[in-house]
Design a protein around this nucleic acid. Structure first.
Lengths: 258, 258
DNA sequence: AATCTACTTACTATAATAGTAAGTTTAAGT
DNA sequence: ACTTAAACTTACTATTATAGTAAGTAGATT
């Protein structure tokens, strides 16, 4: 969080966006009270925001239950936002191609303000899957997170590591900073990171950083995911590590200018 | 446009949403001045809104050109909005299935406040395509528009017809209201509408209304689109009209409660 | 160097919003 | 059917955020 007390910051807009961001596939409807609580605004303020969304067609309200959910205009906006993002035009076809060729679950995220923001995801429909956060702060226990961490300079790396919760997510979660630092050094040499059931039991992944051209700072990361029911991590690495790193470089080359 | 002078309408939020909605695949970057003009706000106001989006990560700004484009948070929002809309969960698989089975371009839109808002689209990648608006007010010259018009009651139908511009979009565009009314009556009987190069030269389509259960008012429409390079309208109708109407009914059955 | 254009900042009157509190509706329990 | 509680809606104002004017700055172009 920054200052945001500047003369040039529209607070009402920020609150509105926070309301809008409450809605996702697991939370497709909300009560007014819940919105007011989550966004931390007065009930009347929440009412005004919600009413604005209703008037504009972004929300709809069940007349009986008063439950609020997204309306047609929200979809139109969602469509536009995804298509209006120039990177998507580049990343989508590359990811789709690899997905159809190798039949694996692929995920591309951008590194942004201490978060990994999901840009594009392609899942194999015949495999187990897991709920992916669109904005995640789990750098210490995910392949993508470690991939990004590994190629930050020392100061930034430490800064980000210090922000981690080091909560034990699964049996293999690394909760010792020193072990993590050692692994990060190795990842940097190898060029890609692994997730050996460190986030969710049974879930394994490999991920490579997508590097900015020139200064080699991480722009984001790409990961391949599967489960131990399908193959072992060793097999997975042997089969796909090269392809993964190659794809990461391809994407980096195409989106030099962000 | 409604009153919107109510105590319970957040004007700043509305303006912000108007700014956000400027971005789409054809307009992925804007100058501040252009935004101020389009949204019809003072330059300073535009600056404040834009700055808010920048602070929050929804926009990014090219430091050299000052051009504004969407940032990672906008993608995250786009993803959430599309996934948070419960109807999508129902419509997507049905449309995808039909698309893969018949290899045609399918478009599902919702009827909302005198507009058709695109909900989901699946295009055949090997055919010619056209720029599709996510929100369109062309009811008189599109198959989906006519499909929706055809099943409104007399008063609403007239209301909506009166709102049309009747601009000559292509050679076959219907610009005579009486001819349109006659065609709408026929469409109602047939159960689906056609577009015989009335919107864009070479583009043909068939569309069926998606009807609310119970009162039979139109909730939206579904269309199949192709070009005259691929088949004639007569062939297209013969091949797909039944499938189309069937799919419309299937979707209607699933989304009874919106 | 001069000029133009587009962006950024400063300042303040005005209009928008936050918050309190008082209605109102709806649902559930008696 | 009546009572109560919870959630939503509306009314009212002090306060604050925002709009708009205007001045200043940076970058590009001549």
């Amino acid at each position: 969080m920054k200052k945001q007390t500047s003369d040039y910051f529209a607070k009402t807009l920020e609150k509105g966006l926070r309301v809008l961001a409450l809605f996702d596939e697991d939370h497709s409807s909300w009560t007014l009270t819940a919105i007011a609580e989550k966004v931390e605004v007065n009930l009347t303020t929440a009412y005004r925001l919600v009413n604005t969304f209703l008037e504009l067609g972004y929300f709809k309200k069940d007349p009986k239950t008063k439950l609020l959910s997204l309306g047609p205009m929200a979809i139109a906006l969602g469509n536009r936002l995804l298509r209006g993002f120039d990177i998507n035009k580049v990343v989508e076809p590359l990811v789709d191609e690899a997905h159809y060729k190798y039949r694996i679950s692929i995920d591309v995220s951008l590194f942004h303000r201490f978060n990994l923001v999901q840009l594009y995801k392609k899942e194999d429909s015949n495999t187990l899957t897991y709920k992916q956060e669109t904005v995640s702060e789990f750098f210490y226990c995910t392949a993508m997170g470690k991939a990004v961490l590994s190629c930050l300079d020392a100061a930034e790396q430490e800064d980000l590591v210090e922000r981690q919760s080091f909560k034990k997510m699964a049996e293999n979660t690394i909760i010792d900073k020193n072990i993590l630092y050692r692994e990060l050094a190795e990842i940097r040499k190898k060029g890609y990171a692994t997730n050996n059931e460190e986030y969710i039991k049974g879930l394994i992944a490999i991920a490579a950083p997508i590097l900015r051209r020139g200064n080699n700072t991480p722009l984001g990361a790409i990961s391949f995911t599967t489960t131990i029911l399908d193959q072992t991590l060793v097999e997975f690495e042997k089969n796909y590590a090269l392809i993964l790193c190659d794809l990461a470089r391809k994407i980096a080359r195409k989106i030099c200018n962000i």
